[in-house]
Simulated assay, not measured.
Amino acid sequence: MKVRDLTLDDLPAVLELEHLLFTDEAWSEETYRGELVDRSGTRRYVAVEDDGVLAGWAGLSAVAGQGDVLTIGVRPELQGRGIGSALLTALLEEAAVRGCAEIFLDVRADNDRARRLYERFGFTAVGVRKRYYQPSGVDAIVMMRQSRPGEAPARQGVGT
Results as ranks from 00 to 15, higher is better:
residue 75 R to F: 00
residue 100 C to P: 06
residue 64 A to T: 08
residue 102 E to C: 01
residue 85 S to Q: 15
residue 80 G to C: 11
residue 75 R to M: 06
residue 112 D to H: 11
residue 87 L to H: 08
residue 113 R to D: 04
residue 87 L to Q: 11
residue 90 A to N: 09
residue 98 R to V: 01
residue 90 A to L: 12
residue 69 V to W: 07
residue 89 T to K: 12
residue 91 L to S: 10
residue 106 D to Q: 14
residue 114 A to L: 04
residue 106 D to P: 01
residue 97 V to K: 14
residue 104 F to Y: 15
residue 105 L to A: 03
residue 69 V to G: 06
residue 92 L to W: 08
residue 101 A to D: 10
residue 101 A to H: 15
residue 73 G to K: 12
residue 103 I to G: 00
residue 67 G to Q: 04
residue 71 T to R: 14
residue 62 A to D: 12
residue 100 C to H: 09
residue 101 A to V: 06
residue 104 F to S: 00
residue 79 Q to E: 14
residue 91 L to W: 04
residue 107 V to S: 05
residue 70 L to Q: 15
residue 79 Q to A: 04
residue 102 E to I: 02
residue 64 A to K: 02
residue 114 A to E: 07
residue 85 S to W: 05
residue 112 D to S: 13
residue 91 L to C: 09
residue 71 T to K: 13
residue 84 G to Y: 05
residue 65 G to N: 07
residue 98 R to H: 05
residue 107 V to Q: 07
residue 98 R to Y: 01
residue 72 I to M: 14
residue 88 L to Q: 03
residue 95 A to F: 10
residue 86 A to N: 03
residue 68 D to W: 13
residue 69 V to Y: 07
residue 77 E to L: 09
residue 68 D to P: 01
residue 73 G to P: 10
residue 107 V to P: 08
residue 93 E to W: 07
residue 88 L to C: 04
residue 113 R to T: 14
residue 98 R to M: 02
residue 76 P to S: 05
residue 69 V to N: 07
residue 82 G to T: 10
residue 66 Q to V: 15
residue 80 G to W: 11
residue 92 L to F: 08
residue 100 C to R: 08
residue 110 D to V: 09
residue 74 V to M: 09
residue 92 L to V: 08
residue 110 D to T: 15
residue 76 P to Q: 03
residue 75 R to P: 00
residue 67 G to Y: 06
residue 76 P to M: 02
residue 69 V to L: 13
residue 101 A to K: 08
residue 100 C to V: 02
residue 93 E to L: 12
residue 111 N to Y: 01
residue 68 D to N: 13
residue 113 R to L: 04
residue 96 A to P: 00
residue 79 Q to I: 07
residue 84 G to W: 04
residue 89 T to P: 00
residue 86 A to D: 12
residue 91 L to D: 11
residue 79 Q to W: 10
